[in-house]
Design a protein around this nucleic acid. Sequence first.
DNA 1: TATTGTTATACTCTATAACTATA
DNA 2: TATAGTTATAGAGTATAACAATA
Lengths: 153, 153
Amino acid sequence: MTQSALIESKNAAGHGPASLDSVLGFHIRLAHGAVYRHFTETFAALGLTQKQVSTLWLVAEMPGIAQSELGNRLRMDRATAMSIVSRMQERDFLWRERCPSDGRKQLLHLTDAGKKALEEAKACIEEHERWLKSRFTPDEVKKLVEMLARIHE
Amino acid sequence: MTQSALIESKNAAGHGPASLDSVLGFHIRLAHGAVYRHFTETFAALGLTQKQVSTLWLVAEMPGIAQSELGNRLRMDRATAMSIVSRMQERDFLWRERCPSDGRKQLLHLTDAGKKALEEAKACIEEHERWLKSRFTPDEVKKLVEMLARIHE
DNA sequence: TATTGTTATACTCTATAACTATA
DNA sequence: TATAGTTATAGAGTATAACAATA
């Protein structure tokens, strides 16, 4: 794709993006796809997905987090969070504890196997992040993270 | 020393990602999810997905593009491109032309209905892009697009 | 009534594999 | 052999709806 195609311009009708290449959402989708594919390759041996690693990581950072709160923080609805937590439970990576003070909630904890899997995953994440960040300066990484956070927060 | 012990010491020394929040790939995934959800809401009435709109748009920009080239440009493998093109053909938004000079290729063209659907979609894209870009200055948008392109190109 | 978890269901995207036709 | 398309299949993520238990 040429640089000139990236220049903001208007279409024949005088409004709207002239070219697909000027659509910000288009680039976010393509960048996500590239990251997703590299992640999948890096994690093929471990058999974990992005969402699953994020889930293990967040539960490790916040032991006893409720399933609903996990969903909120990872931007998943209840059904999606349920699906992922159940799969991690099936593999004995985490367990659910009935909340004593609020019977509706399920508090999540990593098992020893889950902690071990997460440590292995973090090593893969490091490699994956090196690949991803290699094209940016440290300042650019900081700026990029800050701008992406403005989108999802 | 075990593998996980090595990782723990690296993290303690500050080399690995300390928290999920510092992982660039994590923010790309969340930002993509937020954009995806807003896109889906905006396009609920039209019944078109991101990939489908991208497909119609690219075929409009490059009439007679081969299905394989479409897949390359939108970062889809052959099977995925096939699936999306077939659905757009079912809805009479585009048609396939057997390439006269290379019998293996299928050249893609929009129908009148496809052109009409794309024009409606572009109006929705405009609204969607306004929502997305509203949190950035024009310079930031330019920088963000340029950085995202470095990831997917 | 509102929240949380659960189950069932459906659709899209993505990928792999195997097959056919053409170059 | 290599490329392009096709078909079948499978898994992951996303979402909605309906239901039960609890607050």
